[in-house]
Computed example of a mutant assay.
Amino acid sequence: MFKRQTEGAVVCSSCGTLVGVRDATCLNCGRRNPGLWGYAPLLRRLGQDLGFVSLITTACGVLYVLTLLMSGQRIRMGGLFSMLSPDMASLFLFGASGAVPVFGYGRWWTVLSAGWLHGGLLHVVFNMMWVRQLAPATADIYGPGRTVILYTVAGVCGFIASSAAGVVLVWMPLPMLRGAQFTVGASAAIFGLLGALVYYGRRSGMSAVRSQAVGYAIMLGLFGLVMPGIDNFAHAGGFVGGYLAGRIMDPLRPERLDHLLIALACLAASALAIVASIALGLPQLR
């Protein structure tokens, strides 16, 4: 199952044409090492997104359970949207972002970790449903490596925007316009995927893709304006970050090997951010 292919033809990991497993470049799209050292068939078995959706859903589910276990008897059981919510101390420990962690405690790396945490059962379920809806479509267009980059950059942009607004706009009369003192969730990155799809529709002239992505963004944005506890600045920052990252990487050009390497670096940085949050957060909670 995990055997490396050393001869014969494989499918180019960027454009999908047949290439020799030892070819230095793909004659169709120009990608270097299109056979990925003979591991392209193995990676293809993970799906078009190379298993990224499964990674997100599994990691977010595991971290949600861990924060619940850490909360113990402090688990919140309020209304529908706060059912089975970890307590704030547990979310802080695992890497919640926002004005208080970033500017109050100097935990700047939480802009990477917060997107993997969730504040309630419905929160994680709804977000994972949107990830399963949008991430495979984004991977079909941008490629799996660039999708990981888009997802990470959008999350970082969203939490930077929310944390900064939580300091600068704390005086605003409406809570929805103040930013966040504490914030978690994958929705900033989800809005980033929508932003990237909007750019693709504009760049390629495919109005159907653009219209659907804009429609989703407007629907979710309006939902955030009428529902309490929604981090609208994270959504807006994520959307802008995803749109700009999609523009920089240009979806009409084939994915390159360095995109996959950057994607691995993004995942490693996110994991390190969670580890750092726990390691450095324990003394702060004592």
Rank of each mutant, 00 (worst) to 15 (best):
M176F: 09
T110Q: 08
L93K: 11
L43W: 12
S162L: 00
L169W: 04
V170H: 11
V148E: 07
Y216E: 03
R210F: 03
G242H: 00
G166P: 04
G98S: 07
R256A: 09
I278F: 15
R45W: 05
R31N: 00
C26I: 01
L193C: 02
T57D: 13
S270K: 11
N28S: 14
A24Y: 00
G47P: 14
R253C: 09
V131P: 02
R210L: 08
L122A: 07
A245L: 06
A164R: 10
G120V: 02
W171Q: 15
R146V: 01
C15G: 06
W109Q: 12
L264R: 11
I230E: 02
V240L: 08
V53H: 08
G78V: 05
L194Y: 03
I160K: 11
P228K: 10
L261V: 09
V102G: 02
V21N: 12
C15T: 07
V21Q: 13
C60H: 11
A208Y: 01
V168F: 10
D231T: 05
L150R: 02
S277L: 05
T152G: 15
T58V: 15
C29N: 11
L55G: 11
R74T: 09
G201Q: 00
G98H: 04
G237H: 01
E7V: 13
V11P: 11
A268E: 01
L177Y: 07
A269V: 04
I278V: 15
V226I: 13
L220Q: 01
L66K: 08
L42A: 14
Y216I: 15
G145F: 01
C15F: 10
T58H: 02
C15D: 04
L46Y: 12
G215N: 09
G229P: 06
A99R: 06
W108S: 05
G229I: 05
R44G: 10
R45A: 12
R31W: 04
L272H: 06
W108L: 14
L150Q: 06
A96Y: 01
V11S: 15
A24L: 11
H259G: 04
L84T: 12
V184A: 13
V65Q: 08
T67G: 09
R203F: 00
V111M: 12
I149D: 00
R202N: 06
G35V: 03
G166V: 00
G104S: 05
W108M: 12
P144T: 03
L267W: 03
V124G: 14
R202W: 13
V19T: 13
R286C: 04
L91S: 10
N232F: 05
L280M: 10
L50V: 12
V131R: 05
Q181L: 08
L121E: 10
L42F: 12
Y105T: 02
A165E: 02
L252G: 15
R76K: 14
R203A: 15
L69Q: 07
F182I: 01
S187V: 11
Q133R: 13
G158E: 06
F223W: 14
G120M: 03
P101C: 07
F182N: 04
M219N: 04
G155F: 00
P34R: 13
L121V: 12
R107E: 02
L285C: 14
A154V: 00
V111R: 12
Q133W: 13
P228C: 10
V125S: 13
G241C: 04
